[in-house]
Design a protein around this nucleic acid. Structure first.
Lengths: 224, 224
DNA sequence: CTCTTTCTGTTGTAAAAACAACAAATGTAT
DNA sequence: ATACATTTGTTGTTTTTACAACAGAAAGAG
């Protein structure tokens, strides 16, 4: 578990807290480490959780498969990011989504109640951490709204352009890589993969963008 | 402003705080009251805010009109609910959406910074309030995820059934009213109004549901 | 009450997406 | 290197949606 303290130091939740202080807080927060193989479920729809989780290694997808087998990916979690923060409230219901490991991953769990209530021992950074979590939930909130912005577009083309142009802005360059393959991107935008591939082809032919695998380049001068 | 203290007492943010205590905190939190006429903009896309807002009277829509005029309603805010909580973080960017009053409304503003940092005067309930806001953001988070669940459905029919069945669960009855008219519901689900009306007719004819205006009734035995 | 505006359901048409099936390209394991 | 599995692009068909236009119902104003 000690191995991952340098990772924790760089996470949002422990922003502004030194490695030694993190170490001293681990036991106070009931910290545990769980390892998941690629493809394994980390959490399942319908579960009830009360821990805050931090992905310290690997990649996760928060997703849901509906009754007919349509998968939709809500979010990709990268190492250093937390998840489950929205379920720390006492009145929160069961999980609505599955969380699966898309590659071998390690997750660190922290007792939610102890995180939110002042602990008896000397956790000087307690209020700082609560505020950090609050900001993190806020940020996730804004991300969800942004994603809703993509999803609310009517056509596959618009969804693609909405997502890709946001990604270009976010990564600060018209040339960027996305963290999805085609099927995953389709699941993320909730569209059909082949139809999306087709639309990508049209956008390329119309001069809007170039791409190779998960590498994209948006082009200003389109000869549409 | 005093008029609305009983309203504030019933809000999430002031849960567990008495009317007198709320009154004494108003000045400490820079409380201000703003009145908006039906149809007026409360906030506009691109603005930067640092206040937490509580709707004390009326109804608001958080929505966005895209370049081509397609409106999408992200959320309806009812009296007693707060908004803007996700923008209290220092690193938050400009607003992505408009907020408009769908009926005459009154909004109370609180200084975001003062809410999050302990104030010099005797605000005994400060940490309680911070936690309240945290839970509120978490709840909004879960709501957004739920809405994403509707939006990720492929067809108008599935979107409708997803939304309506959730509403039935939420209101604890297969008979319920929704807070939208047809155009607003279409904007909320990001579909075409006439196509949606058509689909509603088909669902009614197939025996899935009955409706009259914004009153709906889901039927178990469908003769589809 | 009458006029006007808004809201809702219906229909036909054009456009787009889902679906299915397949081939080419790429990646992986042995 | 070969065999096998996965990913991606392409095409044709079917289904669904968006769009437009309109008529009846309901609501609101004078």
């Amino acid at each position: 578990m000690k191995t991952y303290i340098p990772v924790l130091e760089k996470t949002r939740i422990f922003a502004g807290v030194s490695e030694e202080d993190i170490f001293s807080m681990l036991s106070c927060l009931d910290a545990r480490l769980c390892i998941y193989k690629k493809g394994a479920y980390v959490l399942r729809q319908g579960e009830r959780i009360s821990d805050l989780m931090v992905l310290v290694d690997g990649t996760l997808h928060i997703q849901r498969d509906d009754y007919w087998g349509n998968r939709s990916i809500l979010e990709q979690i990268a190492a250093g990011e937390m998840f489950g923060e929205a379920y720390l409230s006492p009145e929160s219901d069961v999980l609505l989504n599955d969380v699966i490991a898309v590659e071998n991953s390690a997750v660190m769990l922290f007792n939610g109640k102890k995180l939110l209530t002042t602990c008896p021992s000397a956790c000087r950074f307690h209020s700082r951490i609560v505020q950090n979590i609050f900001f993190a939930v806020s940020e996730k909130n804004r991300k969800l709204v942004q994603k809703l912005g993509h999803m609310s577009r009517r056509s596959t083309r618009e969804k693609l352009l909405s997502y890709l142009s946001e990604e270009a802005v976010r990564q600060g360059s018209p040339r960027f890589s996305i963290p999805f393959n085609r099927q995953q991107l389709a699941d993320f935008l909730s569209v059909d993969r082949s139809a999306m591939s087709n639309e990508l082809g049209k956008l390329r032919d119309a001069g809007f963008l170039k791409f190779d695998k998960n590498y994209f380049e948006l082009v200003k001068e389109s000869r549409a």
